[in-house]
Amino acid sequence: MTVPQDTPEAAGQVSDAPKGNWVDLYAPAWSRGYLRLSRADRPIGTWLLLLPCWWGLLLAMLHTGQAGWGDLWLFVASAIGAFVMRGAGCTWNDITDRHIDGSVARTASRPIPSGQVSLRGAFVWLGLQLLLGLVILLSFNSAAILMGVLSLGPVAIYPFAKRFTWWPQVFLGIAFNWGALMLWVAHVGSLGLAPVLLYLSGIAWTLFYDTIYAHQDAEDDAIIGVKSTARLFAERTPAWLARFLVVAVILMMAAVIVATQGGDPMARLVALIAPWAFGMHMFWQLRQFDAEDGAVLIRLFRSNRDAGLLPLPIFAIALLI
Rank of each mutant, 00 (worst) to 15 (best):
A143P: 14
I95L: 07
L131V: 12
V84R: 08
L51N: 02
R39C: 09
D210Q: 15
S109F: 05
L126D: 03
F83Y: 12
A40K: 00
A29Q: 15
H99C: 07
G89D: 08
D101N: 09
Y158F: 04
L74M: 11
V149I: 14
L51D: 01
A259P: 03
A88G: 03
G262M: 00
L183V: 08
R163C: 14
W284R: 13
A194E: 02
L72K: 10
L48R: 03
E219I: 03
M61C: 12
M252G: 02
L59A: 04
A108R: 11
P168S: 13
R39F: 06
L72G: 13
V84P: 07
L310I: 05
L191T: 15
A161R: 13
I273F: 08
G192D: 15
W240V: 10
N21S: 14
L200I: 14
G12P: 10
Q285R: 08
G262T: 00
L51Q: 00
D97R: 05
P113A: 10
L150A: 14
T91A: 12
L241P: 05
F176P: 00
F83H: 15
G81F: 01
G153V: 15
R236A: 11
Q129L: 06
A277Q: 09
S142A: 14
I250K: 07
G115K: 06
V76Q: 07
H187R: 06
Q169G: 08
G127I: 09
L49I: 10
K162N: 10
V117S: 09
E219A: 10
P265N: 04
A161N: 11
V135W: 15
D293T: 05
D221P: 03
P154I: 09
T260G: 11
M182W: 11
M280A: 14
P113E: 06
G202V: 05
G68K: 01
A214I: 04
A67Q: 06
L58P: 09
L25N: 09
L134T: 15
A194C: 03
A180N: 05
A143D: 12
R299E: 10
L37M: 11
A218P: 07
F208L: 14
F315H: 06
L132W: 14
V23C: 07
G179D: 13
A271I: 03
A108Q: 13
G192W: 12
F75P: 00
G45W: 01
A29S: 15
A108H: 12
R36T: 07
S190P: 14
V246Q: 11
L25H: 05
I317K: 04
P8C: 06
F283T: 13
L48H: 08
L49Y: 04
A88T: 05
G173K: 00
A10P: 12
A194Y: 00
V258M: 10
A77G: 13
S201H: 08
S31Q: 13
R98L: 10
M266E: 08
W54P: 10
W55Y: 01
S118G: 15
E219G: 02
S118W: 03
L320E: 04
F208G: 15
T107H: 05
R106H: 14
L183W: 03
G153K: 15
P238D: 08
L312G: 02
